[in-house]
Design a protein around this nucleic acid. Structure first.
Lengths: 119, 119
DNA sequence: GTCTTATTTCAATATTCGTTGAATTATGGA
DNA sequence: TCCATAATTCAACGAATATTGAAATAAGAC
């Protein structure tokens, strides 16, 4: 991943509504969610949501497919993972002891504990 | 991590110069880097860099300590990791098969291959 | 004290961003 | 065809952002 792509992805996620949308799609998985369903769940105006979907799509974070008269949006995990890798690239100059979370675990495992922010 | 904190961290990283600064600090590890060293490496005006450091600091992504007349900036891995966990929380509704990169590996391991973006 | 280095603060500017409202396109049903 | 649903596009507004140049603060050397 190039810097310019990472900035685009980060900028796309750096907005509360878009972050909510993306996380909803991440949790929805490969099946995705219809635009209307997202609008209802997050209580967003359809045109506003359209604007945000477009940002996420341009950043490569989601894809769309049509199903009847609904547009189904799906998170792109490849881009998300590429971004995570980019952020942590060569962390600590190679000594990962100070910076190694385990991400994307199955549902049951508690995952907020390991990387506790202490300030 | 709360949504508001995640947005703050993402916004802080969603700028090319700040992203470069942060990644430089991530690679520098716990020892950190002096502001001047960062300015030199990235060819940034000192006041511009000051502005960006402040953003990173307010987002909890870096800390500072003084050493002589230099200010040493250090990446905060706890925040970074909390952000990564927040992004991937409950991904795929619990089925991590479609979305599981391994991040923050030691230097030798090649890490850009697993999450290849195919478009 | 004065001088130099290191970094921050302040004010000003152009640019970008998010939301709203109205109008428009696209699909499917009667 | 006519109508309803689903979503997008367009124009406009106030708010936030990144950079620049000049001035100020902090620490150490002489």
């Amino acid at each position: 991943m190039e810097t310019i792509d990472a900035v685009a992805a980060l900028a796309a996620l750096a907005q509360d509504n878009r972050l909510d949308v993306f996380r909803l799609l991440v949790q929805a998985g490969p099946e995705g969610l219809a635009a209307g369903a997202v609008a209802e769940r997050l209580a967003l105006a359809p045109n506003t949501l359209s604007f945000h979907f477009d940002r996420l799509r341009q950043a490569g974070l989601v894809t769309v497919r049509r199903e009847g008269r609904s547009l189904i949006y799906v998170a792109r995990f490849e881009t998300m993972n590429a971004l995570l890798l980019y952020l942590t690239e060569n962390c600590c100059g190679g000594d990962a002891s100070a910076c190694a979370p385990t991400i994307c675990q199955p549902k049951g495992a508690p995952r907020g504990k390991k990387a506790k922010v202490n300030a």
